[in-house]
Protein backbone atom coordinates (compact mmCIF):
# COMPACT_ATOMS: atom_id res chain seq x y z
CA UNK A 1 0.00 0.00 0.00
CA UNK A 2 2.62 2.47 1.05
CA UNK A 3 4.89 1.33 -1.77
CA UNK A 4 2.08 2.12 -4.17
CA UNK A 5 1.57 5.55 -2.66
CA UNK A 6 5.21 6.43 -2.77
CA UNK A 7 5.32 5.27 -6.36
CA UNK A 8 2.49 7.61 -7.23
CA UNK A 9 4.20 10.37 -5.35
CA UNK A 10 7.37 9.70 -7.26
CA UNK A 11 5.74 9.81 -10.68
CA UNK A 12 4.06 13.08 -9.77
CA UNK A 13 7.32 14.46 -8.56
CA UNK A 14 9.03 13.38 -11.79
CA UNK A 15 6.29 14.97 -13.80
CA UNK A 16 6.68 18.20 -11.90
CA UNK A 17 10.43 18.18 -12.43
CA UNK A 18 9.97 17.56 -16.12
CA UNK A 19 7.62 20.49 -16.43
CA UNK A 20 10.01 22.73 -14.53
CA UNK A 21 12.92 21.74 -16.75
CA UNK A 22 10.87 22.34 -19.87
CA UNK A 23 9.88 25.78 -18.65
CA UNK A 24 13.47 26.67 -17.77
CA UNK A 25 14.70 25.72 -21.23
CA UNK A 26 11.82 27.58 -22.82
CA UNK A 27 12.67 30.70 -20.84
CA UNK A 28 16.31 30.46 -21.88
CA UNK A 29 15.53 29.95 -25.55
CA UNK A 30 12.56 32.23 -25.99
CA UNK A 31 13.02 35.22 -23.70
CA UNK A 32 15.17 37.27 -26.09
CA UNK A 33 12.77 36.87 -28.99
CA UNK A 34 9.83 37.45 -26.73
CA UNK A 35 11.27 40.73 -25.54
CA UNK A 36 12.00 41.82 -29.10
CA UNK A 37 8.42 41.03 -30.01
CA UNK A 38 7.21 43.02 -27.04
CA UNK A 39 9.42 45.98 -27.98
CA UNK A 40 8.16 45.89 -31.54
CA UNK A 41 4.62 46.29 -30.29
CA UNK A 42 5.34 49.37 -28.21
CA UNK A 43 4.53 52.85 -29.44
CA UNK A 44 7.50 54.84 -30.68
CA UNK A 45 9.60 56.06 -27.77
CA UNK A 46 7.95 53.80 -25.20
CA UNK A 47 10.84 51.36 -25.39
CA UNK A 48 12.96 53.77 -23.37
CA UNK A 49 10.47 54.21 -20.56
CA UNK A 50 11.44 53.06 -17.10
CA UNK A 51 10.11 50.91 -15.55
CA UNK A 52 10.42 48.55 -18.50
CA UNK A 53 7.26 46.86 -19.56
CA UNK A 54 7.66 43.18 -20.29
CA UNK A 55 4.59 43.40 -22.43
CA UNK A 56 3.28 46.72 -23.76
CA UNK A 57 0.19 48.01 -21.96
CA UNK A 58 -1.02 49.48 -25.24
CA UNK A 59 0.26 47.21 -28.05
CA UNK A 60 0.34 48.87 -31.44
CA UNK A 61 1.40 47.91 -34.93
CA UNK A 62 2.85 51.37 -35.56
CA UNK A 63 6.40 50.07 -35.79
CA UNK A 64 5.44 47.47 -38.36
CA UNK A 65 3.76 50.06 -40.49
CA UNK A 66 6.87 52.21 -40.34
CA UNK A 67 9.14 49.35 -41.24
CA UNK A 68 6.97 48.32 -44.15
CA UNK A 69 7.00 51.90 -45.38
CA UNK A 70 3.31 52.62 -44.88
CA UNK A 71 3.81 55.63 -42.68
CA UNK A 72 2.26 59.06 -42.98
CA UNK A 73 4.10 62.33 -42.71
CA UNK A 74 1.60 63.55 -40.15
CA UNK A 75 2.23 60.54 -38.00
CA UNK A 76 5.94 61.24 -37.87
CA UNK A 77 5.40 64.98 -37.37
CA UNK A 78 3.22 64.47 -34.33
CA UNK A 79 5.84 62.30 -32.69
CA UNK A 80 9.14 63.90 -33.55
CA UNK A 81 8.85 67.44 -32.41
CA UNK A 82 12.25 68.99 -32.05
CA UNK A 83 13.84 66.52 -34.46
CA UNK A 84 16.44 68.01 -36.81
CA UNK A 85 15.06 66.13 -39.77
CA UNK A 86 11.88 67.42 -41.35
CA UNK A 87 8.98 64.99 -41.17
CA UNK A 88 8.73 64.99 -44.93
CA UNK A 89 12.35 63.95 -45.35
CA UNK A 90 12.06 61.41 -42.64
CA UNK A 91 9.02 59.89 -44.26
CA UNK A 92 10.94 59.65 -47.50
CA UNK A 93 13.87 57.95 -45.81
CA UNK A 94 11.60 55.52 -44.03
CA UNK A 95 9.88 54.68 -47.29
CA UNK A 96 13.17 54.15 -49.08
CA UNK A 97 14.27 51.78 -46.36
CA UNK A 98 11.03 49.86 -46.41
CA UNK A 99 11.53 46.24 -45.49
CA UNK A 100 9.32 44.88 -48.22
CA UNK A 101 12.07 44.90 -50.83
CA UNK A 102 14.69 43.11 -48.71
CA UNK A 103 12.16 40.49 -47.70
CA UNK A 104 11.33 39.90 -51.31
CA UNK A 105 15.01 39.82 -52.28
CA UNK A 106 15.85 37.39 -49.53
CA UNK A 107 12.99 35.15 -50.54
CA UNK A 108 14.24 35.08 -54.12
CA UNK A 109 17.86 34.52 -53.13
CA UNK A 110 17.17 31.85 -50.54
CA UNK A 111 14.71 29.91 -52.66
CA UNK A 112 17.06 29.90 -55.60
CA UNK A 113 20.00 28.92 -53.42
CA UNK A 114 18.08 26.13 -51.71
CA UNK A 115 16.78 24.74 -54.99
CA UNK A 116 20.05 24.78 -56.87
CA UNK A 117 22.25 23.63 -54.04
CA UNK A 118 19.84 20.74 -53.46
CA UNK A 119 20.00 19.79 -57.10
CA UNK A 120 23.77 19.89 -57.23
CA UNK A 121 24.32 18.27 -53.85
CA UNK A 122 21.89 15.44 -54.38
CA UNK A 123 23.88 14.46 -57.44
CA UNK A 124 27.21 14.62 -55.67
CA UNK A 125 25.79 12.91 -52.59
CA UNK A 126 24.49 10.10 -54.75
CA UNK A 127 27.91 9.58 -56.24
CA UNK A 128 29.54 9.57 -52.85
CA UNK A 129 27.05 7.41 -51.04
CA UNK A 130 26.09 4.93 -53.70
CA UNK A 131 28.48 4.68 -56.60
CA UNK A 132 31.74 2.82 -56.72
CA UNK A 133 34.76 4.80 -57.79
CA UNK A 134 38.29 5.43 -56.71
CA UNK A 135 39.28 8.45 -54.64
CA UNK A 136 35.87 8.58 -52.99
CA UNK A 137 37.14 9.65 -49.60
CA UNK A 138 39.44 12.16 -51.19
CA UNK A 139 36.52 13.64 -53.10
CA UNK A 140 34.45 13.96 -49.97
CA UNK A 141 37.28 15.59 -48.10
CA UNK A 142 37.94 17.94 -50.98
CA UNK A 143 34.35 19.14 -50.74
CA UNK A 144 34.22 19.34 -46.97
CA UNK A 145 37.54 21.11 -46.63
CA UNK A 146 36.24 23.74 -49.02
CA UNK A 147 33.31 24.40 -46.71
CA UNK A 148 35.64 25.18 -43.85
CA UNK A 149 37.25 28.08 -45.60
CA UNK A 150 35.89 31.22 -43.94
CA UNK A 151 34.08 33.67 -46.14
CA UNK A 152 36.46 36.30 -44.82
CA UNK A 153 39.16 34.51 -46.77
CA UNK A 154 37.26 34.34 -50.02
CA UNK A 155 35.28 37.54 -49.89
CA UNK A 156 37.82 39.83 -51.52
CA UNK A 157 38.49 37.76 -54.65
CA UNK A 158 34.82 36.78 -54.88
CA UNK A 159 33.99 40.45 -54.84
CA UNK A 160 36.48 41.04 -57.64
CA UNK A 161 35.13 38.07 -59.57
CA UNK A 162 31.59 39.38 -59.34
CA UNK A 163 32.79 42.76 -60.42
CA UNK A 164 34.52 41.41 -63.49
CA UNK A 165 31.38 39.44 -64.34
CA UNK A 166 29.42 42.68 -64.03
CA UNK A 167 27.18 41.17 -61.36
CA UNK A 168 27.75 43.69 -58.58
CA UNK A 169 24.49 45.20 -57.32
CA UNK A 170 22.48 42.23 -58.57
CA UNK A 171 20.91 39.34 -56.71
CA UNK A 172 22.83 36.90 -58.89
CA UNK A 173 26.03 37.98 -57.17
CA UNK A 174 24.56 36.61 -53.95
CA UNK A 175 22.79 33.60 -55.39
CA UNK A 176 25.66 31.99 -57.27
CA UNK A 177 28.31 31.97 -54.51
CA UNK A 178 25.74 31.08 -51.86
CA UNK A 179 24.71 27.98 -53.80
CA UNK A 180 28.22 26.67 -53.47
CA UNK A 181 28.69 27.83 -49.91
CA UNK A 182 25.95 25.33 -49.10
CA UNK A 183 26.88 22.47 -51.40
CA UNK A 184 29.44 20.74 -49.13
CA UNK A 185 27.20 20.63 -46.06
CA UNK A 186 24.18 19.59 -48.12
CA UNK A 187 26.19 16.90 -49.82
CA UNK A 188 27.15 15.53 -46.44
CA UNK A 189 23.62 15.58 -45.03
CA UNK A 190 22.10 13.99 -48.09
CA UNK A 191 24.87 11.44 -48.51
CA UNK A 192 24.34 10.25 -44.95
CA UNK A 193 20.71 9.71 -45.77
CA UNK A 194 21.39 7.99 -49.06
CA UNK A 195 23.87 5.67 -47.40
CA UNK A 196 21.14 4.35 -45.13
CA UNK A 197 18.97 3.07 -47.97
CA UNK A 198 19.43 -0.63 -48.72
CA UNK A 199 21.29 -1.34 -51.93
CA UNK A 200 18.83 -4.09 -52.76
CA UNK A 201 16.24 -1.40 -53.51
CA UNK A 202 18.30 -0.06 -56.37
CA UNK A 203 19.07 -3.52 -57.68
CA UNK A 204 15.41 -4.43 -57.49
CA UNK A 205 14.50 -1.35 -59.50
CA UNK A 206 17.15 -2.23 -62.05
CA UNK A 207 15.75 -5.68 -62.71
CA UNK A 208 12.27 -4.17 -62.66
CA UNK A 209 13.37 -2.34 -65.76
CA UNK A 210 14.48 1.13 -64.69
CA UNK A 211 17.59 2.97 -65.77
CA UNK A 212 19.85 4.49 -63.11
CA UNK A 213 18.66 8.03 -63.69
CA UNK A 214 15.03 6.94 -63.34
CA UNK A 215 15.89 5.04 -60.19
CA UNK A 216 17.47 8.17 -58.82
CA UNK A 217 14.24 10.14 -59.27
CA UNK A 218 11.68 7.45 -58.49
CA UNK A 219 13.27 5.51 -55.68
CA UNK A 220 16.22 7.29 -54.11
CA UNK A 221 14.96 10.85 -54.00
CA UNK A 222 11.53 10.10 -52.48
CA UNK A 223 13.10 7.90 -49.84
CA UNK A 224 15.70 10.47 -48.89
CA UNK A 225 13.10 13.21 -48.48
CA UNK A 226 13.93 14.08 -44.86
CA UNK A 227 17.62 14.37 -45.66
CA UNK A 228 16.89 16.51 -48.70
CA UNK A 229 14.52 18.56 -46.66
CA UNK A 230 16.90 19.34 -43.88
CA UNK A 231 19.63 20.12 -46.39
CA UNK A 232 17.20 22.45 -48.14
CA UNK A 233 16.27 24.19 -44.92
CA UNK A 234 19.95 24.45 -44.02
CA UNK A 235 20.71 26.10 -47.34
CA UNK A 236 17.67 28.35 -47.12
CA UNK A 237 18.55 29.51 -43.62
CA UNK A 238 22.21 29.84 -44.47
CA UNK A 239 21.59 32.14 -47.39
CA UNK A 240 18.80 33.94 -45.55
CA UNK A 241 21.27 34.95 -42.90
CA UNK A 242 24.39 35.33 -45.06
CA UNK A 243 25.70 38.78 -44.38
CA UNK A 244 29.28 39.39 -45.43
CA UNK A 245 28.92 38.71 -49.12
CA UNK A 246 25.44 40.23 -49.30
CA UNK A 247 26.55 43.50 -47.79
CA UNK A 248 29.68 43.62 -49.95
CA UNK A 249 28.09 42.98 -53.35
CA UNK A 250 24.89 44.95 -52.75
CA UNK A 251 27.07 48.01 -52.13
CA UNK A 252 24.45 49.80 -50.08
CA UNK A 253 21.82 49.83 -52.81
CA UNK A 254 18.47 49.18 -51.06
CA UNK A 255 16.88 47.67 -54.15
CA UNK A 256 19.22 44.68 -54.11
CA UNK A 257 19.77 44.27 -50.39
CA UNK A 258 18.76 41.08 -48.68
CA UNK A 259 17.44 41.06 -45.15
CA UNK A 260 20.74 40.99 -43.23
CA UNK A 261 22.31 43.80 -45.22
CA UNK A 262 19.15 45.88 -45.06
CA UNK A 263 18.88 45.15 -41.38
CA UNK A 264 22.29 46.60 -40.70
CA UNK A 265 21.63 49.57 -42.91
CA UNK A 266 18.35 50.17 -41.17
CA UNK A 267 19.80 49.88 -37.71
CA UNK A 268 22.47 52.41 -38.58
CA UNK A 269 19.98 54.89 -40.05
CA UNK A 270 17.54 54.60 -37.18
CA UNK A 271 19.99 53.84 -34.45
CA UNK A 272 17.62 54.87 -31.67
CA UNK A 273 14.35 53.61 -33.09
CA UNK A 274 14.31 50.30 -31.32
CA UNK A 275 10.61 49.70 -31.84
CA UNK A 276 11.30 49.86 -35.57
CA UNK A 277 14.42 47.76 -35.41
CA UNK A 278 12.57 45.18 -33.33
CA UNK A 279 9.74 45.08 -35.82
CA UNK A 280 12.29 44.59 -38.58
CA UNK A 281 13.87 41.74 -36.62
CA UNK A 282 10.52 40.06 -36.13
CA UNK A 283 9.75 40.38 -39.83
CA UNK A 284 13.14 38.96 -40.79
CA UNK A 285 12.79 35.96 -38.54
CA UNK A 286 9.07 35.23 -38.72
CA UNK A 287 9.09 33.47 -42.06
CA UNK A 288 12.07 31.23 -41.45
CA UNK A 289 10.96 30.47 -37.91
CA UNK A 290 7.51 29.50 -39.15
CA UNK A 291 8.97 27.36 -41.89
CA UNK A 292 11.29 25.56 -39.52
CA UNK A 293 8.52 25.01 -37.00
CA UNK A 294 6.19 23.48 -39.53
CA UNK A 295 8.82 21.10 -40.85
CA UNK A 296 10.64 20.72 -37.55
CA UNK A 297 10.26 16.96 -37.36
CA UNK A 298 11.79 16.35 -40.76
CA UNK A 299 14.51 18.89 -40.30
CA UNK A 300 15.66 17.36 -37.05
CA UNK A 301 15.44 13.86 -38.45
CA UNK A 302 17.56 14.81 -41.44
CA UNK A 303 20.08 16.70 -39.34
CA UNK A 304 20.46 13.93 -36.83
CA UNK A 305 20.90 11.31 -39.52
CA UNK A 306 23.94 13.31 -40.54
CA UNK A 307 25.07 13.80 -36.98
CA UNK A 308 24.84 10.19 -35.98
CA UNK A 309 27.03 9.28 -38.87
CA UNK A 310 29.97 11.19 -37.52
Amino acid sequence: MSAKLSHRYRTQYTYLMQTVVTILIAVFCLTPMFYILSTSLKPRGAEYMIPLELWPSKPTLQAYRAVLGIVEEAELASESKGSMVLPADQARIVKSLSFVTPLRNSLIVSSAVAAFSLLISSLSAYAIARLRFRYKIQSLIFLQLGAMIPIAVTIAPTFMLMRSLGLLRTLLAMIIPNIFYNVPMSTWLIACYFAELPFDLEDAAKVDGYKPIQIFWKVIIPLAAPGLFSAGVFAFLGSWGEFMLASAVSMGIPAVQTVPAAMLNFSVQFRYEWTWISAAIILSVALVAFMTLVFQRWVIRGLTAGAVKY
Binding site: C29, L30, P32, L237, G241, S267, V285, A289, T292, Q296
Partner: peptide
Protein backbone atom coordinates in the same frame (compact mmCIF):
# COMPACT_ATOMS: atom_id res chain seq x y z
CA UNK B 1 7.55 20.83 -27.47
CA UNK B 2 11.14 21.10 -26.33
CA UNK B 3 12.44 20.12 -29.74
CA UNK B 4 10.44 22.88 -31.36
CA UNK B 5 11.65 25.38 -28.76
CA UNK B 6 15.27 24.36 -28.90
CA UNK B 7 15.48 24.68 -32.64
CA UNK B 8 14.30 28.31 -32.56
CA UNK B 9 17.53 30.18 -31.73
CA UNK B 10 19.28 28.26 -34.49
CA UNK B 11 16.92 29.78 -37.06
CA UNK B 12 17.93 33.35 -36.25
CA UNK B 13 20.57 34.72 -38.63
CA UNK B 14 23.81 35.70 -36.85
CA UNK B 15 23.62 39.37 -37.77
CA UNK B 16 20.09 39.54 -36.38
CA UNK B 17 21.23 37.73 -33.29
CA UNK B 18 23.70 40.56 -32.90
CA UNK B 19 20.87 43.12 -33.11
CA UNK B 20 18.81 41.26 -30.55
CA UNK B 21 21.59 41.28 -28.03
CA UNK B 22 22.47 44.87 -28.72
CA UNK B 23 19.02 45.68 -27.48
Amino acid sequence: ILRAIIIMPWVIPPIINAMIWRW
